[in-house]
Nucleic acid binder design. Sequence first.
DNA 1: AGTATTTCTTAACTTAAGTGAACGAGTTAA
DNA 2: TTAACTCGTTCACTTAAGTTAAGAAATACT
Lengths: 193, 193
Amino acid sequence: MQDILFDFISKYVSLTEEEKNALLSLDLFHSAKKGTILLKEGQKSQENYFVLKGCIRVYYIVDGEEKTTAFYTEMEGVTPHCAINETYSEYYVSCIEDSILLVSNSDMGVEMNSKFPKFEIMCRMLSEELLAKKIIDFDEFKISSPEQRYLNLLQKRPDLIQRIPQYQLASYLGIKPQSLSRLKARILEKSTE
Amino acid sequence: MQDILFDFISKYVSLTEEEKNALLSLDLFHSAKKGTILLKEGQKSQENYFVLKGCIRVYYIVDGEEKTTAFYTEMEGVTPHCAINETYSEYYVSCIEDSILLVSNSDMGVEMNSKFPKFEIMCRMLSEELLAKKIIDFDEFKISSPEQRYLNLLQKRPDLIQRIPQYQLASYLGIKPQSLSRLKARILEKSTE
DNA sequence: AGTATTTCTTAACTTAAGTGAACGAGTTAA
DNA sequence: TTAACTCGTTCACTTAAGTTAAGAAATACT
């Protein structure tokens, strides 16, 4: 599992043994069972989660209804908003599969960044890359209909459609579960007629 | 105008005179008339735009129709995707008001980052902050109806509704201009009944 | 295995957004 | 000043999503 992490990091910077050891000494690796809630609405938390294996999701509860806004799978991570600006969380974060996570907090980040300038560089590269991706995703979402979004997801992340409950996928696509069912039936109809 | 820039930067890092001069020597300040197209679909460009005054927008043209996905006003900026991964741009960027912009390219970024570690730190802070904001904006977009999005915008960015043509606002809200008109009439009806 | 619970789908109906067209106000250009 | 355009709004109609409810299918529990 450590190798997977170091492989990932090596795409951005190359670490010395000392730096690798510093990273390992932070005791970041944790496993979490499916269903584990990592963060609840109204909680304060400093923790960041990076998925080495498995899948976590972010969801809001609005008028008693879950609204899923994001999934994070292998080599993706979340820094909850409440960990940045020290407020109470507006959303939940939970594991939807048995997962292996890197759990860190901002103190560790600050420490690593000040000890090793390389981490600073890696963090900049990573967040710039993620920002660019998010903007593209948001743009695509805005310029597409729910049906196009579904077809798009089918192309780009077919795994998500397989591994994730449909009712969670629905709000991820900005619609209700019933509409997702209908939409899929409509697509099937089109393709067979 | 320079002071506005330095004030903004001072929220993240404090610059020495040397650093300020290095920044000024890059000749970043440019003015652009309303209607200027900074980037076209299919073009390659290395330029980043940061708005000191005015407003720029990002839009796609899909089936001959403009789809506006973002506005950037004072103290906000764009790094077009094509400038990052050196591909052809999928969208347009244009000034919708007479504007004063900082125009930079990635070479300048690399140079400043390597000369002054402070810039590296500022860039990390900035992109982390922007990423967090984008995620929140995207979440809100997903969990809201077009009407809620409009009311939300009215609260958070009333200036945008004033200064921006309605047909551009509409696609920014994920709908057609006719639907925006209807939606506004609906809201007005509700509030007066 | 059998029961309980959750999730997915279908259906009928309501509401809102998409579409195509028309009109008026405001702007620009000849 | 008139003619051409652009933009915002309204209307009638179509299409798709929201809502409520019911039942089937899958999953979890004992």
